[in-house]
């Protein structure tokens, strides 16, 4: 019996399909080949092969401990991967090959270069509590991109407006709700005009009624063509917005595919078990006769 999570055929998905998805000749913007990572004896990631194309939205799902956060963080080199290679825009991330063919840490400048086009949003928001929302967004613009403060503030206000928080610009994070804080965090990352946005369980720390506003912002970003890799438990979001859904379990990619493949049509036992588990806890709609085969 197929599971009840089916991709809706409402407008967002239709617009997604309207995006240029024809045979893409440009190389993938993120490419992982045979990536692995160990923590002591424990193999956290093994043999990960994944490509993300321009404007693609990839959702990573899986049970806790499956390594999905580690995988996402590795894409920003917040975790050092031990095996394989990660290429961001064609350049090797985090490592350099010295003249004897061995790996060593890439210098700070090279790492920063690679991260220039990455924006990251964390589960715990990680806003700086002693600065206002505006301050949080302008800080990197002023200190890293060396933009003049007035110009930086203009840009910051634009991006805060984009996430719907223009009136809260002068507020300190403590006075904002969780959903608002996360949106400020998204604005902070967006202000740097990244080509890729990485989201590490962006709504997991939020009260349920605040989740929607953050997902709405993320949906909008996807529609505008942002390349996104999202670790999430929000299956509805993945079903509606993702181009590819990747299921991880115990450190390896078990299966992947379009939302239909993964949520509706999969026969893979572990995935079905995971989704059933999820449904049992989260679904409160009932299946209609037409959706059952």
């Amino acid at each position: 019996m197929p599971l009840s999570l089916s991709p809706s055929t409402s407008t967002p998905a239709a617009s997604l399909e309207a995006k240029q998805k024809g045979p893409d000749k440009t190389p993938p913007i993120i490419h992982l080949s045979a990536v692995g990572k160990r923590f002591g004896d424990h193999q956290v990631l093994s043999d990960i092969n994944l490509s993300v194309n321009h404007s693609e939205v990839v959702c990573l799902i899986g049970p806790s401990g499956s390594g999905k956060s580690t995988l996402l963080r590795s894409m920003a080199f917040l975790e050092e991967y031990d095996e394989g290679e990660i290429h961001i825009e064609g350049r090797l991330l985090g490592w350099e090959i010295d003249d004897r063919g061995r790996r060593k840490h890439a210098g700070r400048t090279r790492l920063n270069q690679a991260r220039r086009n990455l924006g990251i949003v964390f589960q715990q928001f990680n806003l700086w509590p002693h600065m206002t929302a505006l301050g949080n967004v302008t800080e990197a613009l002023v200190r890293v991109r060396r933009i003049k403060r007035s110009e930086a503030e203009k840009r910051a206000m634009e991006v805060l407006d984009k996430v719907g928080l223009a009136e809260k610009a002068k507020e300190y994070p403590a006075r904002l709700s969780g959903g608002q804080q996360q949106r400020v965090a998204i604005a902070r990352a967006l202000a740097m005009e990244p080509k890729i946005m990485l989201f590490d369980e962006p709504t997991s720390a939020l009260d349920p009624e605040l989740v929607g506003e953050v997902l709405a912002v993320m949906k909008q970003l996807a529609l505008e063509g942002m390349t996104m890799v999202v670790v999430t438990h929000e299956m509805g979001f993945a079903a509606q917005v993702a181009d590819t859904v990747v299921f991880l379990d115990q450190g390896s990619i078990v299966t992947r595919g379009t939302p239909s493949d993964v949520f509706r049509d999969t026969q893979h036992p572990r995935l079905r078990q995971f989704l059933q588990n999820y449904l049992d806890r989260n679904a409160f709609w009932h299946t209609t006769p037409e959706q059952e085969t």
Binding site: A76, L78, R108, N112, R115, R116, L118, G119, I120, F122, Q124, N126, L127, W128, E139, A140, R143, V144, R145, A185, R188, A189, M192
Partner: peptide, 12 residues
């Protein structure tokens, strides 16, 4: 986490 966020934004 606050330091990680800053690092990713490019802060030294």
């Amino acid at each position: 986490g606050q330091l990680e966020a800053g690092e990713c934004l490019g802060l030294g």
